[in-house]
């Protein structure tokens, strides 16, 4: 693993992506502590101010400090995105592996269902689930996790099938190894890498998806400072104070870029032959 890390930091994508993610993590952990103001505090006289010396990124319609709110919002945004991805990845990996190993009609049926679910645009599917579960941050997480599952299942299955074709698996079969040894010791270490890469990139989609749900009023609820929600709340004042939506919007894009970069760096670093 330290080896992988070293490889990872040597790729420019890994380095930049990792740096931004680290900063976001710091904000998520210590956000309220390092924030210059209380994210909930109203500064009535400084409503709608632009970036400046006191309020670095300006203030919103209640005069709340935007920088403080973004820092405070990092926690819910990051946590929800990573958790949603983890949920979808684990569920998808289990389904995909089962499908690949059981094969036959089970595989066929599972993949048909996966195809069908994937024919529903991801966002629409998430919207439907959230509508069933009710609008809240946690429900958005669950909905996104469920929406990610079919895609991850499909990817896991194809990676597993590709590894299954390799001669080192054939060699294990010819040696008379048990099925569980072949799956756990020969195949799994080779399947995990690509799945981690895919999952990392999915975190970027999760950040974007959660923010979109909040924006549509189906994710985190006020007074949360989840970034998507901040953009949504800034919407009525779009032409009055554009900074209000610009900064949380940029925060979303920055974190999503970071996970995209990090995932690509990881792909290069995890290649054992590199």
């Amino acid at each position: 693993m330290p080896d992988t890390l070293r490889h990872l930091l040597r790729t420019p994508q890994g380095l930049i992506g990792g740096g931004i993610i680290l900063m976001a993590l710091l904000a998520a952990i210590g956000g309220p502590a390092i924030a210059p103001f209380d994210p909930e505090a109203f500064h009535v006289r400084a409503r709608f101010s632009g970036p400046g010396a006191t309020y670095w990124l300006g203030t919103d319609q209640f005069g709340r400090d935007i920088l403080s709110r973004i820092l405070a919002g990092a926690r819910s945004t990051l946590f929800l995105a990573v958790a949603a991805t983890a949920l979808g990845t684990v569920a998808g990996a289990v389904l995909g592996t089962l499908s690949a190993f059981i094969g036959g009609w089970v595989d066929e049926a599972l993949m048909r269902i996966v195809d069908a679910v994937m024919a529903i645009p991801n966002l629409l599917f998430t919207l439907l689930i959230v509508t069933v579960l009710g609008a809240s941050g946690v429900n958005a997480l669950i909905a996104l996790g469920i929406a990610f599952t079919p895609g991850m299942a499909r990817i896991t299955r194809s990676v597993a099938l590709a590894v299954r074709q390799q001669d080192f698996v054939n060699a294990a079969v010819a040696r008379g190894e048990t099925g569980s040894f072949i799956v756990l010791r020969e195949m799994l270490p080779n399947v995990v890498g690509p799945i981690i890469v895919e999952a990392t990139i999915r975190v970027a989609f999760a950040v974007m998806g959660l923010a979109t749900l909040s924006f549509l009023g189906l994710g985190a609820q006020p007074p949360s400072s989840e970034w998507g929600l901040m953009v949504a709340e800034a919407r009525p004042y779009l032409f009055r104070n554009a900074w209000m939506m610009l900064f949380p919007g940029l925060a979303i894009a920055l974190v999503a870029v970071a996970f995209n970069l990090f995932g690509d760096g990881l792909r290069d670093a995890l290649n054992p032959r590199a």
Binding site: Q166, D167, F168, N170, A171, A174, E186, P189, N190, P272, R273
Partner: peptide, 13 residues
């Protein structure tokens, strides 16, 4: 059995 491509027949991990 010994296979043709050792790259494929030895588990890289």
């Amino acid at each position: 059995i010994v296979f043709q491509h050792p790259d494929a027949s030895l588990n890289p991990r």
